[in-house]
Design a protein around this nucleic acid. Structure first.
Lengths: 236, 236
DNA sequence: AAGTGGTCTAGACCACGCG
DNA sequence: GCGTGGTCTAGACCACTTT
């Protein structure tokens, strides 16, 4: 791992101190000027660090007042770009129900494929997310076999596909799009989620855009939201 | 309306040209250096403008190559911070089914209220969104009567609550959180959406954080996703 | 008036992609 | 090697909030 950039050091410093409660909710961080002095840097760098904390939902700026620490919503974090593993409120475990394998592209992908993607088969794998032991989300994943080799799901860094992409392949997530539908569970899906056939389920189609040109990650999530609603947040 | 800041002029310039197709999907914008020359400014300002275009989902940066125009997902845009009115793909109309009125806070709000909010009644109103004439989304809205006066829903700027907040009250949206559930429609909701009782519906609880301290906007959306799925996107 | 964040300038050097 | 975006510096002035 490379040495952190200066703005990332500042970002991490305050993130940690907010997480451990050293900066309480609704309180203000030091002024940008003071942070400059503390880290021996200039406002451009400090503002870049604070911008990242805003995007992560830790602070909010108030013109003329300061950078206020806000209450971070606790949740599955399912719809954030960090994926499922960022969850901390519940005990989440993951099983691999279909190992990564070469396949033809699936019609369940709700986004149009690029021409390049259509010319090659895809890699597919399926995982099931459990919360406190019960299956809650079925997750199908697809990506172009041309843009990335067949990954080994059993060697994922900390069990996370995204951390593996980041740390082993240096691929980062740049954006995500979702398409949401409420549906009734088929017998097959109901069985997998230990639900009754006909129960309402949330179907989320996902497309992740990555820093690697030509590589998009497609997903389909079938969620039992009866006990655990799905959360999402977005800060400007 | 104030004069646009320099970075906003640049932002708008390229936004318009992308929208009219002058910059095609997958093509590159001029280099940051060239944009500096074109607008007689410096890279900090140009990068600020491009950062905004990234957040709006118009471009994506590729290190060493340039700023690439990406395909913007066409959608209801329901889950974006711009609210429902940003939709352009379908013909969307809105009716006000409950005019803004003072009420006690509703238990349907899925987020914890602040102490300040609990001390005063709320303003409530309900709207119904129609696509091509058919009711698709029931939208309940709540906010603190202490933080903002009773609005007049019939005088909304271009029919949009958010545009009204922005232009008449100078209040901007700074962040949004969602909580998603798939449920079955009650008889009452099914009737309002012209569905059968027991059909699956998508329930979205929303909290908007605003630039006005003390003002959060709470919402509940009941969506019939059978014909029109809900879309959401997020770019870093 | 003093302190805060918001915008802007005019440079510098580094990291990445490509020919 | 050259052009691209990414990081960083060292200032300046403006807009907003508070005292």
């Amino acid at each position: 791992m490379d040495r952190l950039k200066k703005y990332q050091q500042i970002q991490q410093y305050f993130k940690e101190r907010i997480q451990v409660g050293e900066f309480q909710q609704d309180s203000f961080l030091p002024s940008e000027h003071d942070i400059c002095a503390q880290f021996q840097t200039t406002r451009g760098t400090v503002r870049k660090a604070l911008d990242e904390l805003i995007k992560e939902g830790y602070i909010q700026k108030e013109h003329g007042r300061g950078s206020r620490v806000i209450e971070r919503s606790k949740s599955l974090g399912l719809l954030t770009v960090r994926g499922f593993s960022g969850a901390t409120d519940y005990e989440v475990t993951t099983t691999i129900s279909q190992k990564p394998q070469l396949m033809a592209w699936d019609a369940a992908i709700e986004f149009p494929l690029t021409e390049e993607e259509q010319q090659y088969p895809c890699v597919y794998f399926q995982r099931i997310r459990h919360i406190e032991g019960a299956p809650v989300v079925i997750e199908d994943n697809w990506y172009s076999s041309q843009a990335l080799e067949l990954v080994d799901a059993e060697k994922f860094v900390e069990g996370s596909f995204f951390k593996t992409l980041s740390q082993q392949y240096l691929i980062e997530i740049k954006g995500v799009e979702h398409e949401l539908r409420a549906e009734v569970a088929s017998q097959e899906l109901a069985d997998m989620l230990h639900m009754d056939e006909g129960s309402p389920i949330l179907n989320i189609a996902v497309r992740f855009r990555t820093s690697k040109p030509g590589l998009n990650l497609y997903g389909r999530l079938i969620c039992n939201t009866a006990k655990y609603p799905i959360r999402n947040s977005y800060y400007l």
